[in-house]
Design a binder for these strands. Sequence first.
DNA 1: ACGTGCGTTGCATATTATGCAACGCCTGGA
DNA 2: TCCAGGCGTTGCATAATATGCAACGCACGT
Lengths: 254, 254
Amino acid sequence: MSQTVDRALSILPLLAEGPADLGQVADRLGVHKSTALRLLRTLHEHGMVYRQSDQRYRLGARLIALAQEAMENLDIREIAHPHLVGLNEQCGHTVHLAVYEEDEVLYIDKVESRYPVRMYSRIGKPVAITVAAVAKLLLADRPEAERRVLAEKFDYPLYTARSTPNAAAFLRELEKVREQGWATDLGGHEESINCVAAPIRGADGRVVAAMSVSAPNVVVTADELLTLLPLVRRTADAISGEYSGRTPVKEVTP
Amino acid sequence: MSQTVDRALSILPLLAEGPADLGQVADRLGVHKSTALRLLRTLHEHGMVYRQSDQRYRLGARLIALAQEAMENLDIREIAHPHLVGLNEQCGHTVHLAVYEEDEVLYIDKVESRYPVRMYSRIGKPVAITVAAVAKLLLADRPEAERRVLAEKFDYPLYTARSTPNAAAFLRELEKVREQGWATDLGGHEESINCVAAPIRGADGRVVAAMSVSAPNVVVTADELLTLLPLVRRTADAISGEYSGRTPVKEVTP
DNA sequence: ACGTGCGTTGCATATTATGCAACGCCTGGA
DNA sequence: TCCAGGCGTTGCATAATATGCAACGCACGT
Protein backbone atom coordinates (compact mmCIF):
# COMPACT_ATOMS: atom_id res chain seq x y z
CA MET A 1 0.00 0.00 0.00
CA SER A 2 2.76 2.42 0.82
CA GLN A 3 5.40 2.05 -1.84
CA THR A 4 8.27 3.52 0.13
CA VAL A 5 7.69 1.39 3.19
CA ASP A 6 7.06 -1.60 0.98
CA ARG A 7 10.45 -1.17 -0.66
CA ALA A 8 12.21 -0.61 2.63
CA LEU A 9 10.73 -3.75 4.15
CA SER A 10 11.65 -5.75 1.07
CA ILE A 11 15.27 -5.07 1.90
CA LEU A 12 15.11 -7.08 5.09
CA PRO A 13 14.44 -10.57 3.70
CA LEU A 14 16.98 -9.77 1.03
CA LEU A 15 19.63 -9.10 3.65
CA ALA A 16 18.54 -12.16 5.58
CA GLU A 17 20.10 -14.22 2.80
CA GLY A 18 23.42 -12.64 3.58
CA PRO A 19 25.23 -9.29 3.58
CA ALA A 20 24.87 -7.15 0.47
CA ASP A 21 26.34 -3.86 -0.74
CA LEU A 22 24.43 -0.82 -1.93
CA GLY A 23 24.52 -1.77 -5.59
CA GLN A 24 23.16 -5.23 -4.99
CA VAL A 25 20.32 -3.90 -2.88
CA ALA A 26 19.42 -1.27 -5.48
CA ASP A 27 19.47 -3.83 -8.27
CA ARG A 28 17.32 -6.36 -6.48
CA LEU A 29 14.82 -3.70 -5.50
CA GLY A 30 14.80 -2.30 -9.00
CA VAL A 31 15.43 1.24 -7.82
CA HIS A 32 18.14 3.82 -8.21
CA LYS A 33 21.17 3.60 -5.95
CA SER A 34 20.35 6.88 -4.30
CA THR A 35 16.90 5.63 -3.42
CA ALA A 36 18.27 2.43 -1.95
CA LEU A 37 20.81 4.44 0.01
CA ARG A 38 18.12 6.56 1.60
CA LEU A 39 16.05 3.54 2.52
CA LEU A 40 19.05 1.78 3.99
CA ARG A 41 19.96 4.87 5.96
CA THR A 42 16.49 5.02 7.45
CA LEU A 43 16.62 1.35 8.32
CA HIS A 44 20.03 1.94 9.82
CA GLU A 45 18.82 4.76 12.05
CA HIS A 46 16.33 2.34 13.51
CA GLY A 47 18.96 -0.32 14.01
CA MET A 48 17.22 -2.69 11.64
CA VAL A 49 20.32 -2.99 9.48
CA TYR A 50 23.97 -2.75 10.38
CA ARG A 51 26.83 -1.65 8.27
CA GLN A 52 29.77 -3.93 8.73
CA SER A 53 33.40 -2.90 8.34
CA ASP A 54 33.50 -3.80 4.64
CA GLN A 55 30.65 -1.32 4.10
CA ARG A 56 28.14 -4.04 3.30
CA TYR A 57 24.81 -4.14 5.05
CA ARG A 58 23.37 -6.95 7.11
CA LEU A 59 20.43 -7.28 9.49
CA GLY A 60 20.85 -5.35 12.70
CA ALA A 61 20.70 -5.95 16.40
CA ARG A 62 17.51 -4.01 17.02
CA LEU A 63 15.66 -6.42 14.76
CA ILE A 64 16.80 -9.31 16.90
CA ALA A 65 15.92 -7.51 20.12
CA LEU A 66 12.47 -6.61 18.79
CA ALA A 67 11.76 -10.20 17.86
CA GLN A 68 12.82 -11.18 21.34
CA GLU A 69 10.33 -8.78 22.90
CA ALA A 70 7.66 -10.01 20.53
CA MET A 71 8.07 -13.52 21.85
CA GLU A 72 8.30 -12.52 25.48
CA ASN A 73 4.94 -10.80 25.12
CA LEU A 74 3.17 -13.97 24.04
CA ASP A 75 1.29 -14.85 27.17
CA ILE A 76 0.81 -18.45 26.12
CA ARG A 77 4.58 -18.92 26.23
CA GLU A 78 4.75 -17.50 29.72
CA ILE A 79 2.07 -19.87 31.00
CA ALA A 80 3.29 -22.93 29.17
CA HIS A 81 6.97 -22.71 29.99
CA PRO A 82 6.97 -24.29 33.47
CA HIS A 83 4.82 -27.12 32.14
CA LEU A 84 7.25 -27.74 29.32
CA VAL A 85 10.12 -27.89 31.77
CA GLY A 86 8.15 -30.29 33.95
CA LEU A 87 7.42 -32.55 31.02
CA ASN A 88 11.07 -32.52 30.02
CA GLU A 89 12.05 -33.53 33.53
CA GLN A 90 9.69 -36.49 33.36
CA CYS A 91 10.57 -37.83 29.93
CA GLY A 92 13.96 -36.27 29.20
CA HIS A 93 13.25 -35.51 25.56
CA THR A 94 13.12 -32.27 23.61
CA VAL A 95 9.87 -30.36 24.15
CA HIS A 96 8.59 -27.71 21.74
CA LEU A 97 5.84 -25.11 21.84
CA ALA A 98 4.53 -23.69 18.55
CA VAL A 99 1.90 -21.24 17.33
CA TYR A 100 0.27 -20.62 13.96
CA GLU A 101 0.17 -17.22 12.35
CA GLU A 102 -0.80 -16.47 8.80
CA ASP A 103 0.58 -19.36 6.78
CA GLU A 104 3.44 -20.01 9.15
CA VAL A 105 3.95 -22.19 12.17
CA LEU A 106 6.83 -21.34 14.39
CA TYR A 107 8.46 -22.58 17.53
CA ILE A 108 8.16 -20.08 20.34
CA ASP A 109 9.70 -22.15 23.10
CA LYS A 110 11.88 -25.19 23.53
CA VAL A 111 13.36 -27.27 26.31
CA GLU A 112 16.40 -29.24 25.25
CA SER A 113 16.65 -32.99 25.51
CA ARG A 114 18.70 -34.38 28.36
CA TYR A 115 20.07 -37.06 26.06
CA PRO A 116 23.35 -36.41 24.30
CA VAL A 117 21.83 -36.94 20.85
CA ARG A 118 19.70 -33.88 20.16
CA MET A 119 17.59 -32.75 17.28
CA TYR A 120 18.32 -29.47 15.60
CA SER A 121 15.77 -26.68 15.88
CA ARG A 122 15.68 -23.12 17.01
CA ILE A 123 13.10 -20.91 18.61
CA GLY A 124 11.71 -18.52 16.00
CA LYS A 125 12.37 -20.83 13.11
CA PRO A 126 9.34 -21.55 10.94
CA VAL A 127 8.62 -25.28 11.01
CA ALA A 128 8.13 -27.62 8.07
CA ILE A 129 4.42 -26.91 7.88
CA THR A 130 3.37 -29.95 5.88
CA VAL A 131 4.94 -32.58 8.09
CA ALA A 132 5.49 -31.28 11.63
CA ALA A 133 3.14 -32.71 14.23
CA VAL A 134 2.50 -29.32 15.81
CA ALA A 135 1.70 -27.81 12.41
CA LYS A 136 -0.87 -30.52 11.73
CA LEU A 137 -2.65 -29.73 14.98
CA LEU A 138 -2.66 -25.99 14.45
CA LEU A 139 -3.91 -26.26 10.86
CA ALA A 140 -6.42 -28.99 11.59
CA ASP A 141 -8.27 -26.51 13.76
CA ARG A 142 -8.79 -23.95 11.00
CA PRO A 143 -12.21 -23.91 9.27
CA GLU A 144 -12.50 -26.40 6.45
CA ALA A 145 -12.57 -23.80 3.66
CA GLU A 146 -9.39 -22.21 4.94
CA ARG A 147 -7.69 -25.58 5.24
CA ARG A 148 -8.35 -26.31 1.60
CA VAL A 149 -7.04 -22.95 0.45
CA LEU A 150 -3.93 -23.31 2.60
CA ALA A 151 -3.27 -26.89 1.54
CA GLU A 152 -3.24 -25.80 -2.11
CA LYS A 153 -0.88 -22.94 -1.38
CA PHE A 154 1.83 -24.99 0.30
CA ASP A 155 4.74 -26.78 -1.28
CA TYR A 156 5.22 -30.42 -0.35
CA PRO A 157 8.96 -31.02 -0.18
CA LEU A 158 9.85 -34.68 0.20
CA TYR A 159 12.22 -34.45 3.14
CA THR A 160 11.93 -38.23 3.51
CA ALA A 161 9.92 -41.07 1.99
CA ARG A 162 7.30 -40.54 4.68
CA SER A 163 6.81 -36.80 4.10
CA THR A 164 3.30 -35.67 3.21
CA PRO A 165 3.41 -35.83 -0.62
CA ASN A 166 0.59 -33.50 -1.70
CA ALA A 167 -2.41 -31.39 -0.75
CA ALA A 168 -4.89 -34.26 -0.83
CA ALA A 169 -2.83 -36.39 1.53
CA PHE A 170 -2.30 -33.40 3.77
CA LEU A 171 -6.01 -32.64 4.01
CA ARG A 172 -6.70 -36.28 4.84
CA GLU A 173 -4.05 -36.19 7.54
CA LEU A 174 -5.55 -33.00 8.98
CA GLU A 175 -8.96 -34.60 9.07
CA LYS A 176 -7.55 -37.55 10.99
CA VAL A 177 -5.66 -35.30 13.40
CA ARG A 178 -8.78 -33.22 13.91
CA GLU A 179 -10.77 -36.26 14.95
CA GLN A 180 -8.24 -37.91 17.19
CA GLY A 181 -7.11 -34.71 18.90
CA TRP A 182 -3.39 -35.39 18.66
CA ALA A 183 -0.76 -35.72 15.98
CA THR A 184 2.49 -37.42 15.16
CA ASP A 185 5.38 -36.96 12.80
CA LEU A 186 7.06 -40.29 12.30
CA GLY A 187 10.19 -39.59 10.31
CA GLY A 188 8.41 -37.23 7.94
CA HIS A 189 10.87 -34.40 8.40
CA GLU A 190 14.04 -36.16 9.33
CA GLU A 191 14.36 -39.88 8.77
CA SER A 192 15.38 -40.73 12.30
CA ILE A 193 13.24 -38.33 14.32
CA ASN A 194 9.74 -38.90 15.65
CA CYS A 195 7.36 -36.52 17.42
CA VAL A 196 4.09 -36.74 19.28
CA ALA A 197 2.09 -33.57 19.76
CA ALA A 198 -1.02 -32.34 21.55
CA PRO A 199 -3.09 -29.16 21.17
CA ILE A 200 -3.46 -26.33 23.67
CA ARG A 201 -6.90 -24.74 23.58
CA GLY A 202 -8.26 -21.38 24.68
CA ALA A 203 -11.48 -20.81 26.57
CA ASP A 204 -13.50 -21.01 23.35
CA GLY A 205 -12.04 -24.39 22.45
CA ARG A 206 -9.96 -23.06 19.56
CA VAL A 207 -6.41 -24.38 19.30
CA VAL A 208 -4.09 -21.52 20.28
CA ALA A 209 -0.83 -23.45 20.39
CA ALA A 210 0.58 -26.94 20.15
CA MET A 211 3.31 -28.76 22.00
CA SER A 212 5.36 -31.76 21.05
CA VAL A 213 7.91 -34.21 22.35
CA SER A 214 10.60 -35.20 19.87
CA ALA A 215 13.24 -37.88 20.04
CA PRO A 216 15.57 -39.60 17.60
CA ASN A 217 15.19 -43.31 16.84
CA VAL A 218 18.52 -44.08 18.45
CA VAL A 219 17.13 -43.02 21.84
CA VAL A 220 13.60 -44.41 21.72
CA THR A 221 11.61 -46.18 19.02
CA ALA A 222 8.48 -44.62 17.61
CA ASP A 223 6.36 -47.08 19.60
CA GLU A 224 8.09 -46.17 22.83
CA LEU A 225 7.60 -42.50 22.09
CA LEU A 226 3.89 -43.08 21.52
CA THR A 227 3.55 -44.41 25.05
CA LEU A 228 4.26 -40.84 26.15
CA LEU A 229 1.14 -39.59 24.41
CA PRO A 230 -1.10 -39.62 27.52
CA LEU A 231 1.52 -37.62 29.40
CA VAL A 232 1.84 -35.10 26.60
CA ARG A 233 -1.91 -34.71 26.35
CA ARG A 234 -2.24 -34.25 30.09
CA THR A 235 0.41 -31.56 30.05
CA ALA A 236 -1.26 -29.79 27.14
CA ASP A 237 -4.60 -29.94 28.89
CA ALA A 238 -3.08 -28.49 32.05
CA ILE A 239 -1.73 -25.57 30.04
CA SER A 240 -5.10 -25.17 28.31
CA GLY A 241 -6.81 -25.00 31.67
CA GLU A 242 -4.47 -22.39 33.04
CA TYR A 243 -4.65 -20.35 29.85
CA SER A 244 -8.45 -20.40 29.71
CA GLY A 245 -8.76 -19.56 33.37
CA ARG A 246 -6.86 -16.32 33.06
CA THR A 247 -8.45 -13.03 32.12
CA PRO A 248 -7.84 -12.64 28.36
CA VAL A 249 -4.89 -10.22 28.20
CA LYS A 250 -5.69 -7.21 30.34
CA GLU A 251 -3.87 -3.92 29.99
CA VAL A 252 -1.37 -3.32 32.75
CA THR A 253 -2.25 0.35 33.23
CA PRO A 254 -1.41 1.16 36.85
CA MET B 1 15.83 10.39 6.23
CA SER B 2 12.71 8.94 4.68
CA GLN B 3 9.76 10.16 6.68
CA THR B 4 7.33 7.42 5.68
CA VAL B 5 9.69 4.59 6.44
CA ASP B 6 10.77 6.32 9.61
CA ARG B 7 7.19 6.45 10.83
CA ALA B 8 6.51 2.87 9.84
CA LEU B 9 9.56 1.60 11.70
CA SER B 10 8.64 3.63 14.75
CA ILE B 11 5.54 1.50 15.04
CA LEU B 12 7.53 -1.63 15.77
CA PRO B 13 9.12 -0.71 19.10
CA LEU B 14 5.77 0.74 20.06
CA LEU B 15 4.06 -2.59 19.47
CA ALA B 16 6.88 -4.37 21.25
CA GLU B 17 5.53 -2.88 24.46
CA GLY B 18 2.29 -4.71 23.87
CA PRO B 19 -0.64 -4.88 21.46
CA ALA B 20 -2.20 -1.59 20.40
CA ASP B 21 -5.19 -0.55 18.32
CA LEU B 22 -5.20 1.83 15.38
CA GLY B 23 -6.06 4.92 17.40
CA GLN B 24 -3.26 4.35 19.88
CA VAL B 25 -0.74 3.87 17.11
CA ALA B 26 -1.91 7.00 15.29
CA ASP B 27 -1.76 9.06 18.47
CA ARG B 28 1.70 7.93 19.48
CA LEU B 29 3.00 8.52 15.99
CA GLY B 30 1.33 11.92 15.85
CA VAL B 31 -0.31 11.19 12.49
CA HIS B 32 -3.82 10.85 11.18
CA LYS B 33 -5.58 7.54 11.63
CA SER B 34 -5.72 6.93 7.91
CA THR B 35 -1.98 7.37 7.67
CA ALA B 36 -1.36 4.96 10.51
CA LEU B 37 -3.72 2.48 8.91
CA ARG B 38 -1.82 2.53 5.65
CA LEU B 39 1.49 2.07 7.40
CA LEU B 40 0.14 -0.81 9.46
CA ARG B 41 -1.30 -2.41 6.37
CA THR B 42 2.04 -2.29 4.65
CA LEU B 43 3.76 -3.74 7.70
CA HIS B 44 1.08 -6.40 7.79
CA GLU B 45 1.65 -7.41 4.18
CA HIS B 46 5.23 -8.08 5.06
CA GLY B 47 4.27 -10.08 8.12
CA MET B 48 5.97 -7.62 10.44
CA VAL B 49 2.78 -7.06 12.39
CA TYR B 50 -0.13 -9.35 13.05
CA ARG B 51 -3.70 -8.46 13.66
CA GLN B 52 -5.10 -10.49 16.49
CA SER B 53 -8.72 -11.46 16.87
CA ASP B 54 -9.61 -8.35 18.87
CA GLN B 55 -8.39 -6.26 15.91
CA ARG B 56 -5.39 -4.96 17.79
CA TYR B 57 -1.95 -5.16 16.26
CA ARG B 58 1.08 -6.88 17.64
CA LEU B 59 4.48 -7.84 16.24
CA GLY B 60 4.32 -10.56 13.64
CA ALA B 61 5.88 -13.90 12.95
CA ARG B 62 7.97 -12.79 9.99
CA LEU B 63 9.85 -10.42 12.27
CA ILE B 64 10.78 -13.31 14.51
CA ALA B 65 11.78 -15.49 11.58
CA LEU B 66 13.91 -12.71 10.10
CA ALA B 67 15.74 -12.20 13.38
CA GLN B 68 16.35 -15.90 13.47
CA GLU B 69 17.94 -15.86 10.04
CA ALA B 70 19.98 -12.84 11.03
CA MET B 71 21.53 -14.77 13.86
CA GLU B 72 22.09 -17.93 11.89
CA ASN B 73 24.08 -15.92 9.39
CA LEU B 74 26.55 -14.69 11.96
CA ASP B 75 29.56 -16.79 11.14
CA ILE B 76 31.12 -16.26 14.55
CA ARG B 77 28.16 -18.06 16.10
CA GLU B 78 28.60 -20.97 13.75
CA ILE B 79 32.24 -21.37 14.60
CA ALA B 80 31.90 -20.81 18.31
CA HIS B 81 28.96 -23.07 19.02
CA PRO B 82 30.76 -26.42 19.28
CA HIS B 83 33.34 -24.82 21.55
CA LEU B 84 30.61 -23.45 23.81
CA VAL B 85 29.05 -26.89 24.02
CA GLY B 86 32.44 -28.41 24.83
CA LEU B 87 33.04 -25.88 27.58
CA ASN B 88 29.60 -26.56 29.02
CA GLU B 89 30.36 -30.24 29.09
CA GLN B 90 33.53 -29.60 31.03
CA CYS B 91 32.22 -27.18 33.63
CA GLY B 92 28.46 -27.71 33.55
CA HIS B 93 27.57 -24.03 33.82
CA THR B 94 25.67 -21.68 31.54
CA VAL B 95 27.80 -20.46 28.64
CA HIS B 96 27.00 -17.29 26.65
CA LEU B 97 28.27 -15.78 23.44
CA ALA B 98 27.73 -12.05 22.85
CA VAL B 99 28.52 -9.42 20.24
CA TYR B 100 28.55 -5.62 20.27
CA GLU B 101 26.70 -3.56 17.73
CA GLU B 102 26.07 0.14 17.89
CA ASP B 103 25.44 0.85 21.55
CA GLU B 104 24.05 -2.59 22.27
CA VAL B 105 25.52 -5.87 23.39
CA LEU B 106 23.44 -8.93 22.84
CA TYR B 107 23.59 -12.62 23.43
CA ILE B 108 23.69 -14.55 20.19
CA ASP B 109 24.16 -18.01 21.62
CA LYS B 110 23.73 -19.86 24.85
CA VAL B 111 24.26 -23.32 26.28
CA GLU B 112 22.16 -24.03 29.34
CA SER B 113 23.59 -25.02 32.69
CA ARG B 114 23.39 -28.68 33.63
CA TYR B 115 22.60 -27.69 37.19
CA PRO B 116 18.96 -27.42 38.21
CA VAL B 117 19.33 -23.80 39.33
CA ARG B 118 19.63 -21.77 36.16
CA MET B 119 20.03 -18.12 35.44
CA TYR B 120 17.48 -16.36 33.29
CA SER B 121 18.59 -15.03 29.93
CA ARG B 122 17.51 -15.35 26.34
CA ILE B 123 19.29 -15.29 23.07
CA GLY B 124 18.65 -11.97 21.34
CA LYS B 125 18.13 -10.08 24.54
CA PRO B 126 20.28 -6.98 24.92
CA VAL B 127 22.48 -7.36 28.00
CA ALA B 128 22.90 -4.95 30.89
CA ILE B 129 25.67 -3.07 29.16
CA THR B 130 27.19 -1.38 32.19
CA VAL B 131 27.67 -4.49 34.29
CA ALA B 132 27.82 -7.63 32.16
CA ALA B 133 31.27 -9.17 31.86
CA VAL B 134 30.91 -9.72 28.12
CA ALA B 135 29.84 -6.10 27.62
CA LYS B 136 32.94 -4.87 29.44
CA LEU B 137 35.17 -6.86 27.12
CA LEU B 138 33.44 -5.73 23.97
CA LEU B 139 33.42 -2.06 24.99
CA ALA B 140 36.94 -2.11 26.38
CA ASP B 141 38.19 -2.81 22.87
CA ARG B 142 36.66 0.30 21.33
CA PRO B 143 38.97 3.31 20.78
CA GLU B 144 39.35 5.50 23.82
CA ALA B 145 37.41 8.45 22.41
CA GLU B 146 34.46 6.24 21.57
CA ARG B 147 34.52 4.66 25.00
CA ARG B 148 34.22 8.05 26.65
CA VAL B 149 31.32 9.09 24.44
CA LEU B 150 29.54 5.80 25.04
CA ALA B 151 30.13 5.83 28.78
CA GLU B 152 28.46 9.23 28.99
CA LYS B 153 25.50 8.08 26.95
CA PHE B 154 24.61 5.08 29.09
CA ASP B 155 22.36 4.93 32.11
CA TYR B 156 23.77 3.27 35.21
CA PRO B 157 20.90 1.41 36.84
CA LEU B 158 21.81 0.06 40.28
CA TYR B 159 20.67 -3.51 39.87
CA THR B 160 22.61 -4.38 43.03
CA ALA B 161 25.00 -2.68 45.43
CA ARG B 162 27.88 -3.86 43.23
CA SER B 163 26.56 -2.47 39.95
CA THR B 164 28.76 0.02 38.12
CA PRO B 165 27.49 3.33 39.53
CA ASN B 166 28.55 5.90 36.94
CA ALA B 167 30.52 6.72 33.81
CA ALA B 168 33.80 7.34 35.61
CA ALA B 169 33.72 3.99 37.38
CA PHE B 170 32.75 2.30 34.15
CA LEU B 171 35.66 3.80 32.24
CA ARG B 172 38.05 2.73 34.99
CA GLU B 173 36.63 -0.79 34.85
CA LEU B 174 37.02 -0.86 31.06
CA GLU B 175 40.62 0.24 31.40
CA LYS B 176 41.30 -2.58 33.84
CA VAL B 177 39.54 -5.13 31.63
CA ARG B 178 41.48 -3.89 28.64
CA GLU B 179 44.78 -4.50 30.38
CA GLN B 180 44.05 -7.86 31.92
CA GLY B 181 42.31 -9.29 28.86
CA TRP B 182 39.38 -10.80 30.71
CA ALA B 183 36.40 -9.61 32.73
CA THR B 184 34.08 -10.55 35.53
CA ASP B 185 30.68 -9.61 36.79
CA LEU B 186 30.48 -10.48 40.46
CA GLY B 187 26.89 -9.90 41.47
CA GLY B 188 26.63 -6.64 39.56
CA HIS B 189 23.52 -7.61 37.68
CA GLU B 190 21.84 -10.09 39.96
CA GLU B 191 22.95 -10.36 43.54
CA SER B 192 23.60 -14.09 43.48
CA ILE B 193 25.06 -14.57 40.01
CA ASN B 194 28.70 -14.34 38.96
CA CYS B 195 30.31 -14.48 35.54
CA VAL B 196 33.79 -14.77 34.09
CA ALA B 197 34.31 -13.79 30.47
CA ALA B 198 37.02 -13.83 27.82
CA PRO B 199 37.33 -12.07 24.46
CA ILE B 200 37.26 -13.63 21.01
CA ARG B 201 39.48 -11.82 18.52
CA GLY B 202 39.57 -11.60 14.76
CA ALA B 203 42.69 -11.82 12.60
CA ASP B 204 43.43 -8.14 13.19
CA GLY B 205 43.31 -8.54 16.96
CA ARG B 206 40.06 -6.66 17.38
CA VAL B 207 37.54 -8.15 19.76
CA VAL B 208 34.67 -9.52 17.63
CA ALA B 209 32.75 -11.34 20.34
CA ALA B 210 32.95 -12.33 23.98
CA MET B 211 32.00 -15.45 25.84
CA SER B 212 31.21 -16.01 29.47
CA VAL B 213 30.49 -18.68 32.04
CA SER B 214 27.82 -17.81 34.58
CA ALA B 215 26.75 -19.55 37.74
CA PRO B 216 24.72 -18.68 40.81
CA ASN B 217 26.33 -18.51 44.23
CA VAL B 218 24.35 -21.48 45.44
CA VAL B 219 26.19 -23.69 42.95
CA VAL B 220 29.74 -22.33 43.11
CA THR B 221 31.29 -19.41 44.94
CA ALA B 222 32.83 -16.53 43.03
CA ASP B 223 36.30 -17.83 43.90
CA GLU B 224 35.52 -21.27 42.58
CA LEU B 225 34.14 -19.77 39.39
CA LEU B 226 37.34 -17.78 38.93
CA THR B 227 39.36 -21.00 38.86
CA LEU B 228 37.61 -21.65 35.54
CA LEU B 229 39.18 -18.55 34.03
CA PRO B 230 42.09 -20.36 32.32
CA LEU B 231 39.65 -22.80 30.76
CA VAL B 232 37.39 -20.01 29.52
CA ARG B 233 40.33 -18.12 28.07
CA ARG B 234 41.64 -21.22 26.35
CA THR B 235 38.24 -21.85 24.81
CA ALA B 236 37.96 -18.24 23.65
CA ASP B 237 41.43 -18.40 22.15
CA ALA B 238 40.56 -21.59 20.32
CA ILE B 239 37.53 -19.87 18.78
CA SER B 240 39.66 -16.84 17.92
CA GLY B 241 42.14 -19.07 16.13
CA GLU B 242 39.51 -20.80 14.10
CA TYR B 243 37.77 -17.54 13.27
CA SER B 244 40.95 -15.81 12.17
CA GLY B 245 42.08 -18.76 10.12
CA ARG B 246 39.04 -18.65 7.91
CA THR B 247 38.78 -16.56 4.79
CA PRO B 248 36.98 -13.35 5.85
CA VAL B 249 33.36 -14.01 4.77
CA LYS B 250 33.40 -15.19 1.18
CA GLU B 251 30.36 -15.20 -1.04
CA VAL B 252 28.91 -18.68 -1.55
CA THR B 253 28.27 -18.23 -5.28
CA PRO B 254 28.31 -21.73 -6.73
C1' DA C 1 -33.84 3.32 19.15
C1' DC C 2 -30.13 6.33 19.34
C1' DG C 3 -25.48 7.99 20.09
C1' DT C 4 -20.67 7.17 20.43
C1' DG C 5 -16.33 5.24 19.14
C1' DC C 6 -13.53 2.99 15.92
C1' DG C 7 -11.97 1.33 11.56
C1' DT C 8 -12.34 2.27 6.75
C1' DT C 9 -12.64 4.70 2.05
C1' DG C 10 -12.00 8.25 -1.85
C1' DC C 11 -10.01 12.20 -2.98
C1' DA C 12 -7.66 16.87 -3.68
C1' DT C 13 -3.54 18.94 -2.09
C1' DA C 14 1.16 19.54 -1.25
C1' DT C 15 4.59 17.25 0.85
C1' DT C 16 7.84 13.79 -0.03
C1' DA C 17 10.39 10.44 -2.48
C1' DT C 18 12.58 9.67 -6.80
C1' DG C 19 16.09 9.40 -10.52
C1' DC C 20 19.50 12.02 -12.69
C1' DA C 21 24.02 13.71 -13.19
C1' DA C 22 28.06 15.07 -11.16
C1' DC C 23 31.54 14.53 -7.63
C1' DG C 24 34.94 12.37 -4.54
C1' DC C 25 37.34 8.57 -3.13
C1' DC C 26 39.76 4.38 -3.27
C1' DT C 27 41.86 0.42 -5.79
C1' DG C 28 44.30 -1.74 -9.19
C1' DG C 29 46.66 -1.66 -13.59
C1' DA C 30 49.66 0.46 -17.01
C1' DT D 1 53.03 8.14 -11.22
C1' DC D 2 49.02 8.57 -13.60
C1' DC D 3 44.79 7.01 -15.35
C1' DA D 4 40.62 4.23 -15.48
C1' DG D 5 36.90 1.96 -13.35
C1' DG D 6 33.88 1.08 -9.63
C1' DC D 7 31.30 2.43 -5.69
C1' DG D 8 29.18 5.39 -2.41
C1' DT D 9 27.51 9.99 -1.86
C1' DT D 10 25.25 14.70 -2.72
C1' DG D 11 21.98 18.47 -4.48
C1' DC D 12 18.28 19.31 -7.07
C1' DA D 13 14.15 19.69 -10.28
C1' DT D 14 10.41 16.92 -11.25
C1' DA D 15 6.79 13.97 -10.57
C1' DA D 16 5.04 10.60 -8.10
C1' DT D 17 3.48 9.58 -3.56
C1' DA D 18 1.89 10.05 1.08
C1' DT D 19 -1.03 12.87 3.76
C1' DG D 20 -5.16 14.67 6.25
C1' DC D 21 -9.85 15.61 5.65
C1' DA D 22 -14.58 14.46 5.70
C1' DA D 23 -17.88 11.14 5.19
C1' DC D 24 -19.44 6.42 5.72
C1' DG D 25 -20.40 1.92 7.88
C1' DC D 26 -20.54 -0.82 11.66
C1' DA D 27 -20.80 -2.59 16.32
C1' DC D 28 -21.56 -1.82 20.95
C1' DG D 29 -23.53 0.17 24.92
C1' DT D 30 -27.06 3.22 26.82
